[in-house]
Amino acid sequence: MAFEADGGQAAPDFSIGSAMGAAADYVAAGGLNKAAIAKVSAETQKLVSAAKSGGFKISKEGVEPLLKAVRDMGTELTRLERQTIRLSEAPQLGDHPYGRAVAAHDHKGAAQSANSASAVLGDFKRVVMDTEEALLRASGQYEKNEHATVEALDRLKS
């Protein structure tokens, strides 16, 4: 993989490894939540900023396996989001007080709270999209990709 340092500047304070490592640490410690995603997002924003300023560059050949991994993760998160749509309704556990209480608790944890599966998946998907943006910018492919996306959306509108 070919990373190019910006010769005239100090090394930027970012890395793909630190962003993904932060995510892995939180999963190992019991799962992702809003706070964990916020920390990973902060690392990813450093990567985006460095790519925008030209402080992070990568060759087109070097970026391809990283983009594939990031896009595969986006696809997997989309699949998981589709599964969590079913969580937007409280489960039917009976019309007795205990059934209603458990259903409300399950529903809150799955779809309503800030740390719900739906919220965390949505936040993590934004981190993945930001990572893709940083990689595309760093490899000089961002504008080309953005233009292709706009054209595709225009075709869908027609």
Rank of each mutant, 00 (worst) to 15 (best):
D95S: 14
Y26A: 15
S53V: 00
V128K: 04
G62W: 06
D95F: 08
D72T: 14
A101N: 05
T78N: 06
K68C: 00
V40K: 09
I37G: 04
T78F: 03
L47Y: 06
S41R: 13
G62K: 06
S53F: 04
D130C: 01
K39D: 15
E43S: 13
K46D: 08
L136H: 02
I85G: 04
D72A: 15
K34F: 07
F124I: 10
Q92M: 11
S118C: 09
G109S: 09
L47R: 01
K125Y: 02
A101M: 05
T78E: 13
T84M: 08
T78D: 13
L47S: 10
R137T: 14
Q112G: 05
S139W: 04
A69F: 01
D106R: 10
V127I: 11
A29G: 14
A50C: 12
L67Y: 03
A138M: 11
H96Q: 10
R86F: 01
A110K: 00
K108Q: 03
G94F: 06
A90W: 03
T84Q: 02
F124G: 00
E43L: 11
K125E: 03
A119H: 08
A35T: 15
A138C: 13
K125D: 04
L66R: 10
L93C: 01
K68V: 14
P97H: 10
S118D: 07
R82C: 04
S88W: 04
